[in-house]
């Protein structure tokens, strides 16, 4: 018994050590964001700031409207992840609970969107957005992120493992499809929906090229664009950009920590089932 306890402590220490190693790049970025320029690249290297300074954060916030960018990113990421969640659930519902003509083809087409290189479509999509007059709008920024096939894939696998009999049982009760969808399917899929929401939020929050292209007003720019503005191409000064990086990271990490228990608890329980 004692040996087992000791082993447990050992495993925990090991895991925490490992976690620190994995987290090292982020912790290092945090440390650099608190260093003054000369301490960043020095001999011997500084792991911790010799003297803590908040100058980099001051620069980050005065040089760019960082709060505004974060708000924009938040709005866009929230809109997109909501939409992804809703649309993916609907599509996965169709793919899992209905038999219809062209089902296999439509599903194959859905999966194929994962394999299309997004950068090539950008100008074409820009043209569409520009003709719709959606340049410089939140909807324009969101547009290409409103749906994601990976979410549909994930949810479909989850729903397939969801006993079909449950739906039949619901029908006996005289449940109509919409009611089954909203009253039974959605509530029981909360953990997986959390995953979809969270991973969507993070991925949209981290988008850069598209949000930059379809906005040319400072008030609509997102956080990743802000980070680029802090990056110094000419002189490679790292402090302010690392301050920006840390600021950009805080919301996603917080969100992640809040929801983490819930994801792990229920994600992929049924996993893939054909």
């Amino acid at each position: 018994m004692k040996a087992k306890k000791l082993w447990d402590v050992f495993v925990q220490l090991f895991c925490i050590g490992l976690a620190l190693v994995i987290l090292f790049p982020i912790l290092y970025a945090l440390s650099v964001s608190l260093m003054d320029q000369r301490a960043v690249l020095a001999k011997p290297p500084n792991l911790l700031p010799p003297k803590v300074t908040f100058e980099n954060y001051r620069i980050a916030f005065t040089r760019t409207t960082l709060w505004r960018y974060m708000l924009n990113s938040f709005i866009v990421a929230l809109l997109c992840s909501m939409s992804r969640m809703v649309i993916a659930t609907m599509a996965a519902f169709a793919f899992s609970f209905f038999e219809f003509k062209g089902k296999r083809l439509l599903f194959a087409l859905t999966l194929s969107t994962i394999m299309v290189p997004p950068d090539v479509l950008i100008v074409s999509n820009f043209t569409t957005i520009s003709r719709l007059g959606l340049i410089n709008t939140y909807l324009g920024v969101c547009s290409i992120f409103l749906v994601s096939a990976t979410n549909i894939f994930l949810l479909r696998q989850h729903f397939l493992s969801f006993a079909k009999s449950l739906k039949e049982a619901a029908y006996v009760d005289g449940c109509r499809n919409i009611r089954f969808f909203t009253a039974i399917l959605l509530p029981t899929s909360k953990p997986i929906l959390t995953t979809v929401f969270l991973s969507s939020f993070v991925s949209v929050w981290n988008q850069y090229v598209w949000p930059m292209l379809v906005t040319n007003k400072n008030e609509l720019r997102t956080i990743q664009v802000g980070i680029t503005m802090l990056k110094d191409r000419e002189s490679s000064i790292f402090g302010p950009v690392m301050a920006g990086v840390i600021m950009a990271l805080i919301p996603t990490v917080l969100l992640f920590l809040v929801f983490q228990r819930r994801i792990v608890a229920g994600m992929m329980t049924g996993a893939v089932k054909e």
Binding site: V123, T127, S130, R131, M212, L213, N216, T228, M229, R233
Partner: peptide, 17 residues
């Protein structure tokens, strides 16, 4: 308005449309 260096991405997009 800040644009991605070297500034041509957004320009060519606007030009082609």
């Amino acid at each position: 308005v800040f644009q991605n260096w070297p500034g041509t991405d957004a320009l060519t997009a606007a030009m082609s449309t």
